[in-house]
Nucleic acid binder design. Structure first.
Length: 116
DNA sequence: CATCTGACGACCG
DNA sequence: GCGGTCGCCAGAT
């Protein structure tokens, strides 16, 4: 499968901003949904300058396997991305491929789901 | 060819 | 908020 379009978008994520697998999948209309985005990232070729660390779970949750999780947090924090208890503050850093910066501060539907 | 396994996210109780 | 299931589907075994 060609994940080029995925990498292409990821590569466009500005420094200090992040994208979620779901948003990525929906934007590109990937068959298989968010998980497809996850597969794409898991297959990300290293050393290609792809900012894989800027892709996180739906609520800013870091989902990468342990070896990378710490690195990812470190990289994000190094570019000024703020965290709230192991979660990226999407409210201020979520980016949109379509060019929808709108950070906003009013949380609308941020109260549900699990994951620990 | 048959199974298993996820770098997800939606739902349910 | 927490734990568990389900749909999806490309690779790995």
């Amino acid at each position: 499968m060609s994940w080029k379009p995925v990498y292409d978008v990821v590569q466009r994520i500005p420094r200090g901003r992040v994208l979620t697998y779901g948003a990525l999948a929906r934007f590109l209309r990937l068959p298989g949904g968010a998980r497809a985005a996850g597969r794409a990232m898991a297959a990300t070729p290293n050393g290609k300058g792809i900012p894989w660390h800027r892709v996180v779970g739906e609520r800013g949750r870091i989902l990468t396997p342990e070896p990378y999780a710490s690195l990812q947090r470190r990289l994000l924090q190094s570019e000024r991305v703020t965290f709230i208890e192991f979660r990226v503050d999407l409210n201020n850093h979520l980016w949109s491929p379509a060019g929808k910066p709108s950070p906003q501060k009013t949380k609308k539907k941020v109260t549900r789901r699990r994951n620990s």
